[in-house]
Amino acid sequence: MKKFAGLTKRNLMVFFKDWQSVVFSVLTSMIVFVLYLLFLKGTFMEAFQSVLDAVPGLADFIREEEIETYCDLLLFTGVLGSAMITVPFQCLSIIVRDRENKIDYDILATPVCRWQIVLSYFTAAALSSVLLTGLILTAGLAILVSKGSIYMDAAHVMGAYGVVVLGSVSATSLFMIVMLSFKSSSACGAFFGILSAAAGFVIGAYIPLSQFSESVQTVCNIFPASHITILLRNVLLNGVLSEMNRSAGGVDNGMFVYSLKEVFPFEAHMFGNNLDVSGMLVYVSLAVLVCTAVMIFTYAKTYKRK
């Protein structure tokens, strides 16, 4: 246990001591945030206003602070969702660097078991993601609370942290497999650039997935990260949506909230079907199990003496 803990601590230190690496790992989240400040928020608010204006009298019931909180939380799911993709990837790139610089030889020549080496990379990456994303979640919630009500109870908040853990573990298990295909740090870095750019789109942080064709939605929702973002939407936004429904007082028969949920989906659409919260939880858990099985097989082959 001491050996495994030592290796995991080493992997965590190597990641967190390289501040540039840490900054790059949350760069996509920062870009989403900056874009939101620059124009995304305005776009969201305008879209809301036009929907409200279309239903006579509705604007009198839905308060502006509710709309603003909804938009802020919507952004927040994008920030958290992309962080849970990029942070574990960046932390796992230590595997590639270790192999490239033959640091793995130094580890392999010690009495540490092979499975402990693999598990230490996994644990360090998942922990890094939980720590950084958890920190962003805490800071974000604190800021939103300071601005006014976030319409969330303790169960919602705990649920959000739970999704962060699940998202970190699922992304880590997937990227553990991906990492073995990189022979050099430069190839890994190039892929990270593409991943950072694509992450925001795949999870629907910039444009809602509902705007894309059914096949594109299916492809995006194959990745557990999209489910994780939708799960976050469920725990973070359901409170404010219920509040809006209450405020509307049945004027629209719940159609306003229903249409909002259609635009920024609360269910994952894939292969012509919709997965609800429990369906998504099952899907992500299965994805983790499959990735872990593949990981055990591929790493056993890789870390076996060559």
Partner: peptide, 29 residues
């Protein structure tokens, strides 16, 4: 056994102390 490899295999971003402490842990120290 102990090995001094041809190329350095310690971590650049860690201090000497951190490098040696983490490597010691590989042997359960």
């Amino acid at each position: 056994i102990g090995i001094v490899f041809q190329n350095s295999v310690l971590d650049n971003k860690l201090t000497v102390k951190e490098n040696l402490y983490t490597r010691g842990a590989y042997y359960g120290l």
